[in-house]
Design a protein around this nucleic acid. Structure first.
Lengths: 216, 216
DNA sequence: ATCCGGCTTGGGAAATTTGCCCGAGCTGCA
DNA sequence: TGCAGCTCGGGCAAATTTCCCAAGCCGGAT
């Protein structure tokens, strides 16, 4: 990464869909200056791949099931603060975007962006700049003006648990996914309900859906 | 499409993510026998593109926002019954898969499938065969198929209770609305879950939503 | 006519979850 | 240093869920 202009930008792809990875790889390689040096299909493997290949930019999807992609961002940044991470996902919730940036991401681009936006975002973060797609900027802008979504009352953990719960996971499954005790998940469940004012699990699911936390 | 073997397979890509379309395009073109002749980024444009280019296979993501991808399938098949449609999406719920097939899809492949699975599925549906990825076959098998819509298994009362429940009503409220004992509503709740195979209240809500029983 | 099967309605009892309260560790911030 | 907030879990009574069962009703089959 000492001379990006001369050597191009090396990229680590992290996404749980092989097809999508393959698509990225072809897209990036066709640019000439972008080179995919490694891939990972889950957040847990991301750091290992990062350490092994020392890419200029990590492109990762934080909407992977199970472990949080935010965790992966923190993991990488904690050990390699100069790492550049571009989040590339279909989610566009303001809370998620803010969480990603505060976790250490350098950029956030939605999958509905034009390919040119993505490749330019990769080049931007490789230069140490911040990058985000127009829709994300829009969402953050509106969010900064708005009264605040219901989700703003929730912490990161609470949001993750709400997402999995609304997605149909049982308490035990969530506990297993996040490596928590069932009791803790139950407590979060209850906390989320009281915080959001939902009196019913069904109301919670609807809430998550209307906030875009889960798609139905 | 008169001679697939000689001319290759022409494909129409329908997906709301430009990047993903670009990825597919590169993947398919690299196969030699598959040619992307058109793209569309929403369900509404899909039929126009189909009519204009008469592709052998339509590869489409039914998880697009706004209009239903199922609608697009029905649209295309209604006017061109010999159309071959391969659904390619990240969703893997049995109800959705069955809905897609009953809408006229010829194949259903999840985005977590290997690239080779996708290209082979395209070739299969081009030959007029059915195709689905292993995970989808598994899900359908477990679903033990049988009954058409999930709602067909439910009686009138069960549907009414499911609707109110998914709408956010508590057990007591439902009992009061319908002049039943709380116990009866509880039993219905349980019965509905076992009948539909939902293991979670959240899954029940999603089910009701996907069946159009409640809007979110 | 009779019987079968499914829907509707609820009781009962064990298993599980919920509702709240609590404490502890940790982090960031003043 | 101390406060505040998030995360994580124990405890325990109250509530709900999970199953199993029974009975009435009704339409269709025999």
């Amino acid at each position: 990464m000492s001379d990006v202009a001369a050597t191009g930008v090396s990229v680590l792809l992290v996404d749980d869909h092989p097809i999508v990875r393959q698509g990225y790889r072809r897209l990036l390689e066709s640019q000439g200056d972008l080179h995919v040096v490694a891939e990972a299909d889950n957040a847990a493997d991301a750091y290992g791949a990062f350490k092994a290949h020392d890419p200029d930019v990590v492109v990762l999807d934080i909407s992977m099931p199970g472990a949080s992609g935010l965790e992966a961002i923190r993991n990488i940044r904690a050990r390699s603060p100069r790492a550049r991470i571009l989040v590339f996902t279909m989610h566009n919730e303001a809370v998620l975007v803010k969480a990603a940036f505060s976790a250490g991401a350098s950029g956030f681009v939605t999958k509905s962006s034009e390919p040119s936006v993505v490749v330019n975002a990769i080049r931007s973060v490789a230069r140490g700049e911040r990058a985000m797609s127009d829709d994300i900027a829009h969402i953050l802008a509106e969010d900064s003006l708005s009264t605040g979504s219901v989700l703003d009352q929730l912490g990161e953990r609470e949001i993750e648990i709400l997402r999995q719960f609304a997605g149909g996971a049982t308490t035990e499954e969530i506990a297993a996914h996040l490596n928590l005790s069932v009791k803790t998940v139950q407590n979060y469940h209850y906390l989320i309900k009281t915080k959001t004012g939902a009196r019913t699990d069904a109301q919670l699911v609807r809430l998550a859906a209307t906030c875009g936390l889960t798609k139905i």
